[in-house]
Design a binder for these strands. Structure first.
Length: 506
RNA sequence: GGGUGUGUAGCUCAAUGGCAGAGCAGUGGCCUUUUAAGCCAUUGGUUGAGAGUUCGAGCCUCUCCACACUCACCA
């Protein structure tokens, strides 16, 4: 037995006491004929129809409030649809049963109650209980002690809002905070809406390996694991990109995957070591086509789950209605940082200008990285309304197709909303010769012995050699989309079980 | 990794360096239409952990732990 507090010990002893009376506090069977909402609806319908025979139901849920008043008891139980009041009377249940309830039932217990629906004197639709049964005893009291229902809204007088407890004990958070339960329903609705949108465009959803012998498709440090029998190190994927494009080579033409990526990097309000990504690839599309799909898809999802394409995020009214603003990256940096990157075709030149303007940057960075840091420092915070930034430096985009006539630039865009990067997309590089050269440029090598160098993904190059049609590709952080659509400012609020440091007690 | 802040009862929070408290929950009573039910009584503390200063530390100092915010890192 774990160490119990006095409150828990008291409840634990009730379990023992129930068993000595031959009552199992964790019975194998339970019944729920209606949810709270269905029971209320059925009653209202019968009432409107002038039906005289009572609406008989069996409800099940967690006991969330109890008001014993001597020979009657009012209580509320909560199920997935909400709360409903129970009414118990000594006339119906007998003194012994009333005592039994008062003595052995606690807030947080799961109960099953049968009876008929009626209205109390105050008009509240209530279950008049003829039989009540314990179906699962709670030993640990729920952290929020008391709620009040005002006009159908649950007002918490002593709520659980300590962030650490909420994240470490998400089960308790969900159990006492209905808005948290609702948020995760919305999250699922967002994923369903994304699927519906893409399915309607004749995409197929696929699953590709999470354990990969060579990681790629993004710039991130991987988690490493090991297959014992094969005596082989494997990486948890940092993106799905290279596998999905193999499927384009195979002729599937329109594919997407929604799944987990793993990146062995810092944690922040918008970063978690594992996060959910949507990637799709569409043959015969280029990055301009993908922009159109992106803005339509996000607007579709917002409409579906939020009922509107206008959202509020960090006190900003954000309008997701297409078309979104399109801004050339060069122009955006010129306007916000006052530097024209086109005038600085080399890292040395750009670095010198940044130094002259006292803009902090890491010496020895590539031109692309310098541009990326200008973007992050000056431009990104200004991109509140949805904006596609397009035409990115080639050296930070090794999988994107070059822009015709501009050797330094590729056909890539990123979508920003609320000052946060939401998605990344490009016209895919489908020239195997150029792709091999890009891999070599970024330090991949056929001789993978050198630990500093990533092995060349020869199989991916072989796939490209078979021929890949012109393709537009897209990746988006589903967690970040969920943050935007639910107005949450931390990725942890939209992850059921966010990553936290191991605590002492675990 | 750096900075700022927080950590007190099951939950939400008080406490000038001087007896560690309240509301709710819990426990024992009363109560046949309540809904933060009410009324009476009452239990509950290694003040995150450890060390130091002091006659005396929840409070001051140091170390550590956790969390939050933030900066840095992050093709």
């Amino acid at each position: 037995m774990p160490e119990y507090t006095d409150l828990e010990r008291n409840r634990y002893e009730k379990i023992l006491r129930l068993r000595t009376q031959g009552i199992e506090p964790f019975p194998a069977k339970a019944k729920q004929s209606h949810t709270s909402a269905e029971a209320a609806a059925a009653f209202e319908q019968a009432e409107a129809a002038g039906q005289t025979e009572p609406v008989q139901v069996t409800l099940a849920g967690r006991l969330r409030a109890a008001r014993p008043m001597g020979k009657i008891i009012f209580a509320h139980i909560e199920d997935r649809a909400g709360r409903i009041q129970l009414f118990m009377r000594v006339n119906d249940l007998g003194a012994e049963m009333m005592d039994f309830f008062n003595r052995e039932f606690d807030l947080g217990d799961f109960v099953q109650a049968s009876g008929h629906m009626f209205r109390t004197r105050t008009g509240e639709i209530t279950l008049h209980v003829t039989e009540i049964k314990m179906i699962a005893k709670a030993i640990t009291p729920l952290p929020a002690a008391k709620d009040e229902v005002v006009d159908g809204q649950v007002v918490r007088h002593a709520s659980l809002d300590d962030a650490e407890t909420r994240y470490r004990q998400r089960y308790a958070d969900l159990a006492v905070n209905p808005d948290v339960r609702q948020l995760f329903r919305t999250r699922t609705a967002i994923v369903r809406a994304l699927q519906a949108y893409l399915d309607n465009l004749d995409f197929i959803e696929v699953e590709t390996p999470i354990l990969q012998p060579i990681y790629g498709g993004a710039a991130a440090k991987p988690f490493v694991t090991h297959h014992n029998q094969l005596k082989q190190d494997l990486y948890l994927r940092i993106s799905f990109e290279l596998y999905l494009k193999r499927l384009i080579v195979g002729g599937l033409e329109r594919v997407y995957e929604i799944g987990r990526d793993f990146r062995n990097e810092g944690v922040s309000y918008k970063h978690n070591p594992e996060f959910t990504q949507l990637e799709f690839y569409m043959a015969y599309a280029d990055y301009h086509d993908i922009m159109k799909i992106t803005e339509e898809m996000v607007a579709f999802v917002a409409q579906k789950v939020h009922g509107s394409t206008t959202i509020t995020f960090h006190d900003h009214q954000i309008d997701l209605t297409p078309p979104w603003r399109r801004l050339e990256l060069r122009q955006g940096i010129l306007e916000t940082a006052g530097i024209d990157i086109a005038e600085h075709p080399t890292a040395e030149s750009l670095s010198a200008t940044m130094t002259a303007r006292q803009i902090k940057h890491k010496p020895g960075s590539t031109r692309g990285k310098l541009i990326d840091s200008l973007l992050g420092d000056f431009l990104e915070p200004t991109l509140i309304q949805p904006t596609f930034l397009y035409d990115y430096p080639r050296d930070i985009s090794p999988l994107a197709k070059s822009k015709p006539g501009d050797p330094l630039t590729v056909e890539r865009f990123e979508g920003y909303v609320g000052g946060m990067e939401l998605c990344n997309a490009f016209s895919e590089l489908n020239d195997p010769l150029d792709q091999e050269a890009r891999f070599l440029e970024m330090g991949r090598d056929y001789n993978a012995d050198d630990e500093e160098k990533h092995p060349m993904d020869e199989d991916y190059l072989r796939a490209l050699n078979y021929g890949m049609p012109p393709t537009g590709g897209f990746g988006m952080g589903v967690d970040r989309l969920t943050m935007l659509l639910t107005g949450k400012h931390s990725i942890r609020e939209v992850l059921l079980f966010p990553h936290l440091r191991k605590s002492d007690e675990e």
